[in-house]
Computed example of a mutant assay.
Amino acid sequence: MSTTGPTALLHSGRPGMPARVLVVDDEAHIVEVLAATLTFAGFDVRAARSSAEARQVAAEYRPQVALLDVLLPDGSGFDLCDSLREVHPELGVLFVTARDAVGDRLTGLGLADGYITKPFSVAEVIARLNVLLRRLAARRSDHPVDPVLRVGDLEVAVQSHRVSRRGDDVELTPTEFRVLTYLMSRPGLVVSKQHLLSEVWGHQFGDVTAVEKVISQLRRKIGPGLLHTVRGFGYTARDGAP
């Protein structure tokens, strides 16, 4: 496969932020080649070697595009495509696979935005990525959406900053809103106090008392059963008992 080609033409839509790409393949050398060349071309790349790992990485990383192999050790890339898009409906998907039968191509094209067979040219992969990213950007501008985060019966409309539980609006301060959306965008994952301090307040180091205070205020406002403390580790947003 060729490892030379054009650089990334399109970024994430945020100034200075490269487009986020998730590479999923169980062959180590394929992952290494794609990750290295796409990073060199200007993309922000994460990799996974299985369907389970891909779902975990996607939950934290929230990629814009996924490059998926069809043959994975714990399932089909076709099934992975479906499950990723259930959680991330705006995700762009390109299959990069050795499965070149007509039936596989038709199945893949019915699910994803493109189908590339191995051996492949990295230049073609980059070109396809740029075309897909332009298409996704145009789709977002034509159909602006207000993403909604849900944990249990709590809903957060990210763009309009509307928070409700069981249909009742909840008034939050800007800092409370940022902490809540950060946790709800990573449901079930445990986030440390220091990490919240860094990501929400922008302080790499410091007193975590502010974090504890905001969590306490959020629990009082949204009610019990959603924000949990994992002692010694941090906080998590999930429905149900701790």
Rank of each mutant, 00 (worst) to 15 (best):
S121Y: 14
A98P: 12
L106S: 14
D104N: 13
R139I: 00
L9H: 11
L129C: 05
L133P: 01
L71F: 13
R105H: 05
A112S: 10
D82E: 12
I126L: 02
A123C: 08
T97K: 04
A66H: 00
V21F: 00
R20T: 03
A36C: 04
A123H: 07
A66L: 04
R128E: 11
V33I: 15
G108Q: 04
V93D: 07
V145S: 13
M17Q: 15
R99T: 09
L71V: 11
R105P: 13
A35Y: 00
V70S: 02
P73H: 10
D142T: 03
L10D: 01
G108R: 04
T117A: 04
D44S: 08
R62A: 09
A101Y: 05
D113S: 08
L129R: 02
V131Y: 04
T97S: 15
S141D: 03
V93A: 06
E53M: 01
H11V: 02
N130I: 08
T7E: 05
R139W: 01
E32Q: 11
P15G: 03
V131D: 09
L68Q: 03
D104M: 03
D146I: 01
V131A: 10
R140F: 07
R128D: 06
V93M: 06
V125H: 00
D146M: 03
A59D: 07
E32L: 10
V102R: 14
E53I: 00
T7V: 09
